[in-house]
Design a protein around this nucleic acid. Structure first.
Lengths: 214, 214, 214, 214
DNA sequence: AATTAACCGAGACGGTACGTCTCGTCTTATA
DNA sequence: TATAAGACGAGACGTACCGTCTCGGTTAATT
């Protein structure tokens, strides 16, 4: 659905072929890495013709995108899920909730089955402007909105100052984690994310107070 | 000369060829992006044989690495310089100093002449483990040490609590900026980095206090 | 209907589709030549599905064969007709009759509307053994019998020696013409075919005399 | 040399690669026929890259052309040789000489090792106008000149009338043989070619006499 | 000044993958 | 239930680069 081409007669589309392609893409991305991931290889592994891939996706990044999307759609309701209408958990304790979410993300990123294809997709996004736009629209923005909704709930509950810059807050909380993962700058642990949440939240609180005093 | 091969008789090396290759790599990276940057293209643009490149560098990422290094070496003493023994400025006001440094980085990243080759190099680092190691050893780590030294000075000056996790501090301050740049998540401005510095620093302070109280 | 498949329910066969396919095949052969003549193209031009062609014919050569057959069936009784029960003309003057026949063939071969599809079919026959067999059985052999009948009449009329090798005679008279056409070795004119007939016939006469003398 | 591309640096050309390609082309043409002969297949069989073929030849027909040329160049001095500066044999007896030459050609055409690639090349010539021109210029015309020289010698020796149409003579003598081969219309034997020579030559003599009488 | 070792440009080579094209078969929806 | 439409597996097309490998022709440092 999202990054796939539109025009060919979608009604006649072969479901088994689509599934085989997405599975093969995921497997190969995890096995050989993005660099050596090729459409030729995906087609061979999936047992389809190359044209069947080119007919429905504009780039190998788009295939990977859909593959990851399908992967997460098959696992509904999980905490760190990147889609799902669910939204972030809200027990009333913002810090605890965020720690839970980030711990789940850490676990996901420590699983090569998710992590390697995700890294491959990320690289593609950095190179492919068209895919980047699709990604931002279909994944990044909705997720950011979801995060914002949770923070707004915290504001309503008096746990966060109304003047807080929510975008900056999200950058502070999730940015360092993504960076550490992407550049393999250190081990991903819940200890790290717990400290991250504590420091970022108290920084945000302090910043609001400072603004008030001015 | 960091990422270059060691063995061939470096004394006989052609300086003009080296210069032409680095310039061509930079130009092409800025013009066509990482994806379509090729050693074949660099050699053609530089007017050298391909072998001259393969003789001295192990990958196109390594060429790019040296090209960027040469670029910054030609501009010594500037504030945001990524190398140089200089170290970060220390006027006694940590927040002000960091804002200055990040503002300089922002300016650099807003200049496509730096930014595009840098993005190309970054992508290569994500894919090429060997280059990533070199990069970490030669650039990332020294720069991180430099940042740590500045933060330690702040600790000594009583502006930062002695218990502060310096690595987390660096992640908090520089991580969101790198992220915003890499994923083009929004405009890079000094307003953003100023807020970043303020929030991160006060979060760090607050976190220390909380630790003390416990 | 000679080269067509046998099995499917021929009764249900769509006559308009068949006609459209044969016409399209002929047109395309004349327009784009054998090399770029494709079943895909014939189906598109005819407005039929590809399967409708594959259902009834085993190869594009077979389509072409039928197309040319249909073409000549629509023009019965003409002198150079390749089929029809008519037989070659017999005015009593063998040389004159043959010149007439070959002149008609020359005219046909100079008309691209006949010539190009015929060349396409010929090329297919050279590559496709199965089609070649069908062709030999359905067209080449009957025509050769027809030619032989005319030569036998000439023998009966005392214009040709009874010992004449009729197959050789046919090869001598028609072979050079076919060759000149197929390889475009020179212009096809009745002057050429007239000389051909004269020389071949007198050679045959002379050969018989020589045999007699021995 | 003949149908090969001109431009690339021919001095650096790999002789083993060239040889392997020509051999592979010949073998594959004999094994699978022209239709399924592919550049991909030739490269694979020869153990070369595809580019090495595309660098030096414009089409698979051109490869085949050179392969057959090389084949005949490796067998100098034989009677039916298609090139060779030698010229046709001249013992003073035209009929005997021609019978010898055609018998040698028959033997060649009965050898699948020659015959199948030759048939493949012939088919290509019928489809590929550019190759046809090259073929005519480099092979067909010189051979025809060679044949004409022998016939002119016969004229000088009084064995052939000076008014004889030499092109027609060549068509009469060689045309039926080529036809019988190309269309597999019957077995190729020296009995056939002997009768061909006798009949054609006496026809030519008779035709001249007839011309004289007029 | 002559020697000589290596770098230099050039580019052919065996490969891999690209994205396109067409083949002949299989599938779906329509009439 | 035969059609048109067209998706499918297959695989060749011709191109772009990869990284390796010769070539001659300059350089330099050593004799």
């Amino acid at each position: 659905m999202p990054t796939e081409r539109k025009s060919p007669d979608a009604a006649r589309r072969s479901r088994p072929a689509r599934q085989a392609i997405l599975t093969a893409a995921l497997d190969l991305a995890a096995e050989v890495g993005y660099r050596r991931l090729s459409i030729e290889g995906i087609a061979a592994r999936a047992g389809t013709g190359k044209q069947t891939i080119y007919r429905w996706w504009p780039s190998k990044g788009a295939v990977l995108f859909d593959a990851l999307l399908a992967l997460s759609e098959n696992e509904v309701g999980e905490v760190g899920g990147q889609d799902g209408a669910a939204g972030l958990p809200d027990t009333g304790d913002l810090a605890a909730d965020l720690k839970l979410v980030l711990a789940a993300t850490v676990e996901e990123l420590n699983n090569p089955r998710y992590s390697e294809p995700m890294r491959a997709l990320t690289v593609e996004i950095l190179e492919n402007a068209e895919l980047a736009a699709t990604y931002r629209e279909r994944l990044d923005q909705p997720v950011r909105e979801m995060k914002k909704r949770r923070l707004l709930a915290a504001v309503a509950a008096g746990q966060l100052d109304p003047g807080t810059d929510l975008d900056l807050a999200i950058d502070l909380i999730w940015g360092p984690l993504q960076n550490r993962w992407l550049f393999r700058e250190g081990p991903l642990t819940s200890a790290f994310t717990d400290a991250l949440v504590d420091t970022a939240l108290s920084g945000l609180a302090q910043a609001s107070r400072r603004r008030t005093e001015t």
